[in-house]
Design a protein around this nucleic acid. Structure first.
Lengths: 219, 219, 219, 219
DNA sequence: CATGAATGAGCCTTCATTCAT
DNA sequence: CATGAATGAAGGCTCATTCAT
């Protein structure tokens, strides 16, 4: 049985937080262990001691982020399978947006994830299995309920993709939005308004598609 | 004023193509001048000779990509302001998707652009001004027509964002899609099906919102 | 004065054995304290606690090895000054070879010593004084007896060197022998055959030199 | 066709010489690229540029040493197969000793080789094939001539080993000799005297063994 | 115009050692 | 007595850039 001193736990924690920031700002390759240790206020060898190497530190950061974000904003908070799918969809979208736009994370979470999207490391497999796939399954159930029994798997998948993509946009397009609209930060109300829009937009769309399906085409 | 020989032009071209590949695969920082020069079959000093330094080469690559992609797939090909907005929306979406999924570019274009999104370099300002803003303006006109005169600027903007985000998703989420759905590449018909879906999804949504607006709510 | 508990003695012993292996395999510099402690099953700080630092551990290992090897194979086992020099020479060579080729030491002893030969540490002075000089003195007496009274100190010294060098060869040239002859390990009979050869070779040589001396040349 | 500038050749040469010194003094692992470059008066990246990495530099040094030493002191200089084996043996021993004790090499050659003996790197295979095996073959022919036709392969091999080991002793035991005899350096005459001794010692031994063989034993 | 050669900064990692419990 | 945690000094290597032809 290993004894783990509380100071060691605190050091690990400090490194994790600092690494999250630096990896988010610079990406895995560009981020330097030196910068991480400087911000964490620890010696440069501490990373090796506590995490083995830079890559394993990165994976630890990703897992840490996932835990924090999904515990703070569960995708089905306050709703169950008995609730109407419209409500469950709104909850889902709202949670996803909050995970992305919550200022407390200093945008660490979305930046890390989006970087992983476009420049996958071995950690992406873990991320897909533990974070994305369960979320997608949950959303699929909701969308299926909305589309009705006749919906093909392909149409469900595409609708889910449409919903998710509208949320994720706020994870990777913020520098562009800043330049295009001048909006840099998103307050509590901004987030709620955006969530409402995406929910409404998607609900109209899915209902429209469902109606079209019955008639045998998209119009 | 520099004299420009034809061999110099060809060397420049070769470097641009090679750099496009390498930057797309590895990102600005991780890409190495050595690798670019090796693929281009030129001396390692050629980059600095022709472009000054790595960063200015990168900007040149971005501009080169933009020209190629937007000339090949204009956002308003075959339609004019007199055409119905539904048709113009479909053309817009189709062009955007083709720019993103055209296999001929070896996915160079979307990777480069998305990288710029999440890790902006000074080149992003240029990109927003010359590529994104005109596109967004064009799309806004279409969406305004669909929503009707009473639509606020905010709702127009959010609808445009919803449309654009569904397309861009295929630029940055392909590694995830590969893991989630097993689909790695997108053929001609895949692209058309996806374009049809996004167009239908968005039309239903916008029409629904337009109808709701008149009545004064989203429900 | 330190109190020495029995567990402390056992820890020291385990470290000594482990360090002997690791130093023999990797050499002083390349060997790591971490590896030694891992094999000994002790904490990484134990080396510094028990031996001060890496170098003093190394010296302790060398002394430990010397004691073990020379107690197991004394250079004059079973013979005394009254025995004929031919017999004493054979015993000397046999003991030296056994110290070098005994598989029980896992070739720890010769590797350590030979390393010390070519990359001396302060421990070499100790080794020369406590191990080599007495051995050389003993061998000199034997060779003097064989050469006769007229032998110069120089010729005695060179003959001793010739004898010793033939034995030591099996301490440092084993990797080469493996590649050259394919012979990797030496069994009991191999050792005896080699000892017989070196003894015969050297006796013929010394006798020949002795005869030549009388006549005033090497023939 | 690559053009190789003369300054590049000179840089390579300087690095090789400096690396020879440092590797000989410190061994492969302990030697630092920084020290090598400092002594060579070149930038630290030059090793990477000219040799790829530390290990390939090491192999280049070994090959360079081999060429220099064997060209300066060929094992059969001035003799041919028609010469009497006694003469050829003396020439062989003399060349080997000179390679080992020549002060011009600053003892670079023997130290490098002996290090390779006791701590083999992948370069040892090359060394055995290109340097040791041909030498051993040459010596075997000489020894066979001396022993006569009835000599078994085993006895030839052991005699060769005895001869070679007496020479090699001066490659690895010099620090010990310095402490034991006080002799630090070996002048021209020292080398000749030692060569004469080893030749005489070995000739007496081999002749004695040959005579014993005829009678059916070693006495 | 273009190239092979050279540079210096910086990165990740490893290691022996020391600290605080 | 012994340990887990922490430290700072290097070390090998890579890279964008510049130099000299």
């Amino acid at each position: 049985m290993k004894k783990i001193s509380s100071t060691a736990v605190r050091t690990r924690q400090r490194i994790l937080e600092a690494a999250g920031e630096v990896f988010a700002e610079a990406g895995f390759r560009t981020a330097t262990v030196r910068e991480i240790c400087k911000r964490a206020g620890v010696n440069i060898a501490a990373v090796n001691y506590h995490f083995g190497d830079k890559e394993r530190l990165y994976v630890a950061v990703l897992k840490y982020c996932k835990t924090v974000a999904f515990e703070k904003y569960p995708a089905d908070e306050g709703v169950g399978e008995s609730d109407p799918p419209e409500k469950r969809l709104r909850v889902f979208i709202r949670a996803m947006l909050w995970r992305i736009l919550d200022a407390d994370h200093a945008s660490m979470f979305p930046k890390l994830v989006v970087r992983e999207y476009i420049e996958p490391t071995p950690a992406l497999d873990m991320w897909v299995d533990e974070a994305i796939r369960p979320m997608f399954q949950l959303l699929s159930n909701i969308v299926e309920s909305l589309l009705g029994k006749g919906a093909s798997e392909a149409i469900v998948r595409m609708c889910c993709t449409s919903v998710v993509s509208q949320c994720l946009h706020f994870a990777y397009a913020r520098p562009v939005m800043k330049r295009l609209f001048g909006q840099e930060s998103f307050g509590k109300w901004d987030i709620e308004i955006i969530a409402d829009h995406i929910a409404a937009f998607s609900l109209h769309a899915i209902r429209g598609l469902a109606a079209g399906q019955e008639k045998g085409g998209t119009g």
